[in-house]
Design a protein around this nucleic acid. Structure first.
Lengths: 336, 336
DNA sequence: CGGAGGAATGTAACGGGTTACATTTTTTTA
DNA sequence: TAAAAAAATGTAACCCGTTACATTCCTCCG
């Protein structure tokens, strides 16, 4: 494998000149530049990026902490991140963390190890908390952007949906259809996402003068199975709800199956609503009423915020809120 | 940020001793080791991985070229790769290539740039072809493993399913149910996957004495939409098929929706079969008959083959074939 | 023509580990 | 107890670009 010294010898110039000819072409004369490029060609020279990165202390790598790579919503976010990063000349390293704090800390450490320049975290957890890395970074703030599920009082730049307003919009929709007993299949208990969405749900109930009944809430974990299971609990109880609001589309699809297995029809007997608008949402039977999120834009915005921060184009900590869209399909209908 | 020299000074030993105490503890005396570790602790020393990698010309990074990260099947494969890689101390860099050859070449170049040690390619394309890198690697073979969709006459280690046998098993299943006109929604024309599965389909027809009718084949691209569209073509033609074999589950789910929209029932009027057994398959209505693939094992095997190769534990090029499993659910039934 | 000033190029230090080889210390062997 | 072998440790070269600083070469002006 040829290195810069081989090329220098071949071109009859110094290594510095070769380096400049490649990185800052306007600093060398056209004649020399041509000689150097010819030598590069002849030697089949490829700069050793490890050396470049080592010397310049920059990798142009971004680490993305993804709780579950299999989640179609996150897939879209990732696509957005990659588009933006690619344009800015960054590579994206995806890390499937399963939401394990230790794993997240480990991958985040890549920034301290100079293996990556910054982190995008898609979950409400600070992998740098208490790691004492404050002083290593300008402003005492590690280069991280928090997107999708955002920590409370987030000290990092962030991008999220107004989950409370979105949940309220969906609940309003159900209320307008005449539903007064609306079940909820929640996400993990401690997630801010869940908390905000429940708040929005209550906002809508309060506005409609409906009394909040905690027994209508069922825990889930964003999987098809958990939606199936939770729906079973809801429909077999005394005085079941006439509508179920699920905190994501997978759980909604699981719930619909369970409801049909119980001999009930959607939406005639029970309405079901989802959240996220994944590709499968419009292919479920019936097609799902849901909240569309600009997933790709979440990713793109997060990447842009991070890169701005890395390249010093950014002062202050921006908190971005993106718009939701209520998509009404056929899984919700008037109360019987 | 402290470096190895700080630690050496603090411990009163040479940098070489510090390096050894950390990397090869049994080469230094217990007493010295203790002193060094104390100094490491005191200095808050973290080795600069860039320097380590630069020097040792190894990154412990694996690049995975994924055609579409959003595909649930690939998500599972990735999970398998990560499990195995993690255990062996490798990081996984996921690259969403959209199947673009140029992008794949670009990411594969990370190996030549010393940014990664090896590549796992999930598509039948050689990103190193004609790049003249042969001589840079032992045996003239770049460190790549091809999994899932494997190139013909693959010169790299590979892992795949016996697609021909699997497609034959599925077609046999349909034939046993009495179907004689079986439509197919194919994957991309040039994919070896598609070619092999069509071959298996013909094997089954031949064995049953059914004449192969090319007009029953419809192209698709593995998306929900394409399944929907293709099913429309098939069911509105003269003399439509009584069963449709789709080359993946997404297309099958799309097809089922289209069939229902045409006022037909699945499986009473038309049977539909898929391939892959993604999570949504058992939650479609009706639940999908499909071919289960050991997706995680594809990933794990590919990673293991690659790492063995990287660490010189491997001689010769292994081609692994994993077993499929016909999963019969409710989307296929006896011909009317 | 001498000198200022700028462009082009060269020299060499540098980054932070690893490791071959040299040296010192300890243990084993005769 | 001396010599040989083994273990522990140290020295310094090395990996390969980047870049501060030094030097050389022009161009232009008085």
């Amino acid at each position: 494998m040829s290195n810069i010294r081989t090329v220098a010898r071949l071109a009859g110039v110094s290594v510095a000149t070769v380096s400049r000819a490649l990185a800052k072409p306007d600093l060398v004369s056209p004649r020399t530049r041509k000689k150097v490029l010819a030598a590069v060609e002849a030697a089949g020279y490829k700069p050793n990026l490890m050396a470049v990165q080592f010397r310049s202390r920059r990798t142009r790598n971004l680490v993305v902490l993804v709780p579950v790579i299999a989640n179609p919503f996150f897939s879209r976010v990732i696509t957005g991140i990659q588009g933006c990063a690619r344009e800015a000349g960054y590579q994206v390293l995806l890390c499937n963390t399963q939401g394990r704090e230790e794993t997240e800390r480990e991958y985040a450490r890549m920034v301290q190890n100079f293996q990556a320049d910054g982190v995008i975290q898609l979950r409400a957890f600070d992998p740098f908390a208490d790691s004492g890395v404050g002083s290593d970074f300008p402003g005492g703030l590690p280069p991280l952007v928090n997107a999708c599920e955002v920590m409370d009082d987030c000290r990092y730049p962030s991008v999220k949906l107004d989950n409370r307003a979105a949940a309220r919009a969906m609940t309003d929709h159900l209320v307008r259809l005449g539903h007064r007993r609306i079940g909820v299949i929640k996400g993990p208990q401690r997630s801010p996402l869940t908390r905000d969405r429940i708040a929005g749900y209550r906002d809508a109930l309060d506005a409609a003068g409906i009394i909040y009944d905690e027994t209508l809430l069922c825990p889930g974990d964003f999987t098809l199975q958990s939606g199936h299971r939770a729906a079973g609990t809801l429909i077999t109880r005394d005085n079941p709800p006439s509508a179920i609001f699920c905190e994501n589309d997978e759980m909604a699809i699981g719930a619909i199956q369970r409801i049909k297995q119980g001999g009930l029809r959607v939406p005639e007997d029970i309405s079901v609503a989802g959240f996220d608008d994944i590709a499968f949402a419009s292919y479920s039977d019936p097609p799902l009423t849901t909240i569309a999120q600009p997933a790709e834009e979440f990713g793109a915005t997060a990447a842009r915020l991070l890169i701005d921060q890395l390249e010093g184009r950014q002062q202050g900590v921006t908190h971005s809120v993106l718009p939701y869209d209520l998509v009404v399909r056929d899984s919700t209908g008037p109360v019987r």
